[in-house]
Nucleic acid binder design. Structure first.
Lengths: 313, 313
DNA sequence: TAAAACCATGACAGAAACTGTCATGGTTAA
DNA sequence: TTAACCATGACAGTTTCTGTCATGGTTTTA
């Protein structure tokens, strides 16, 4: 085995063990203890954060920021990483912000000059637009850790009327429209509630563990798969503009039938409970669509139109 | 200089030159030609995509997917990368999707087992919520390239009334609410327009170059600070629901005045050109708001309401 | 057609780097 | 005090690396 390959493996070994002696390494790799020492100082020079504790029950230790063996990327892959970081640029708070910087620096330093220039040009050409929020969310990392380790959190939260202290079992966090949200099981209320993380005033990790009832993806999907109670047939005629508009609604898109580029219709089944929302949606599209069924929807739209005329009479 | 360091530098050299002979390398690094050959096969084995052309005026060449020298990341940095990729998960189309996969694979392969498990748990704990769009946008990469190279594009686009063919000078692309948008200078209309890339039916790169008038960040900032040509006073009364709704609109938010939790108003100045959009917005809010000024806006809303009643008469 | 300018590869001796063995000198915990 | 660690240096034997030389390709150009 070449020396390079061996050092490479040694990095992996070191990260896996976290704590070990030179003797361990010597045995594992079939080398002498002296050489084990030599190799270990080699990888320490390469950047693996090792330190040693002398004395009996001493040995080598790895600092918590463990190092991965060197990886070779190509230019396109570097682009992909910078590009992904772009997507995070507009968030005021991120759980990994410091490390995004350090990855960028390391990558950037290794690029040839012309590629650097290309990367520099990236944000003049592509952006992920997000509401630029000014409210910071300082607890993101703690929440992630607590959710992953299933630990209860004690938080002080700005509610509608007052600040409350609650014990919650966090399910996870998600970003939407520039805000961070934490769905969590509220112990006192006995149900899952949604918290905006920027409204958390203080946070404390407790030692208590909890039994996870749900994972984040489950929670996010939950509301979209409403079980139909009283189904209603939906039939809507679409003009060209109606087609264009409805196609950008994920919940309608699958049910659109295009008759010609200028004509189409929607045929689907919705639930009674969704009627209010659907009415609002088709109302707002005005004459770009014409609802045929259900009757209630047509009535709802007419009623809304009448209300407006009444208001501005 | 150690061999490792030298190979490292050689990778950089090779990427910078793209085409060179063993003799060049020997001179550059002060080694013999024979050793240059040996080193070059070494880095080729390491994954640098070299090939050679024999014969006079032959030499070593680098394939277009250029390789960066090996980089060492630590666990936190790997997390940051995976995390950034998470943010892109809900996009149906991305310009660099293939390379995101390959970066993930390379990184993942180098992780110790326990870290792998942590990464696997990441999406059960954190998500970037985005409308999950089903409409694909196949031309993203072409647009970026054209924008960066300042090349005119010929596109067929689904407009309100018909499909049109236009020659446009793309400024860039940006993502918002799960859609991709391309602001571009429309040659025929002589102004910058905004296109949704999923509405582009076909695209052709022309050989023609253009003089860039504006970069993407400029454009994104400019649209919010439209120079008022013919300013119009806007005054809208808000109910409790109106307050709630308007507050989540970043363009309205600064102008909302809350009189009581159940009452408020908007007082602002908008531009004549924005009237159509604003009319649509307040129309859709129905009786939650009451527009007082401008007159045109009120008339527009009433007209839309009448049209609806006429349609469903 | 020959010469020039490349790459590819093997052989080999001398140089350089690496390795294991010993030895010595620390520190810490039991 | 002893055991179990790390740290480092010296040294000889081993391995690897390097440069030189030689041979055999291919392609361009004069």
């Amino acid at each position: 085995m070449s020396k390079a390959k061996l050092l490479f493996d040694l990095i992996l070994y070191v990260n896996a063990k976290r704590s070990f002696t030179a003797q361990d390494v010597a045995n594992e790799f079939g080398i002498s203890v002296r050489t084990a020492h030599r190799y270990l100082t080699d990888i320490a020079d390469m950047g693996v954060p090792l330190y040693t504790e002398p004395g009996r029950s001493g040995g080598y230790r790895v600092l918590p920021n463990r190092t991965l063996p060197p990886i070779m990327f190509n230019e396109e892959e570097a682009f992909a990483i910078f590009f992904a970081f772009q997507a995070l640029k507009y968030y005021q708070s991120l759980p990994f912000d410091i490390h995004i910087d350090s990855v960028s620096r390391k990558l950037y330093a290794s690029l040839p000059d012309d590629t650097k220039r290309k990367i520099d040009g990236l944000d003049s050409v592509i952006t992920f637009w997000n509401q630029k929020r000014t409210v910071p969310s300082p607890f993101l990392k703690e929440i992630i850790e607590a959710a992953a380790a299933h630990r209860l959190l004690k938080i002080e939260y700005v509610s509608k009327l007052e600040n409350t202290v609650r014990e919650v079992a966090p399910i996870g966090i998600y970003a939407s429209e520039g805000f961070w949200y934490m769905p969590a099981f509220d112990q006192a209320h006995g149900e899952i509630r949604l918290f905006r993380t920027d409204r958390i005033v203080s946070m404390e990790q407790t030692k208590q563990a909890f039994e996870p009832q749900m994972e984040l993806p489950d929670w996010l999907n939950r509301s979209t798969t409403l079980t139909p109670e009283s189904p209603v047939r939906l039939y809507v005629e679409l003009t060209r503009e109606g087609l264009r508009q409805c196609r950008s609604q994920p919940w309608l898109e699958p049910y659109i039938v295009e008759v010609s580029p200028d004509e189409g219709y929607i045929e689907s089944v919705i639930d009674q409970r969704e009627l209010e929302f659907v009415t609002g949606y088709f109302f707002q599209l005005g004459t770009a669509v014409k609802v045929i069924e259900p009757r209630e929807l047509v009535d709802g739209i007419r009623e809304q139109a009448r209300e407006i005329l009444r208001q501005y009479a």
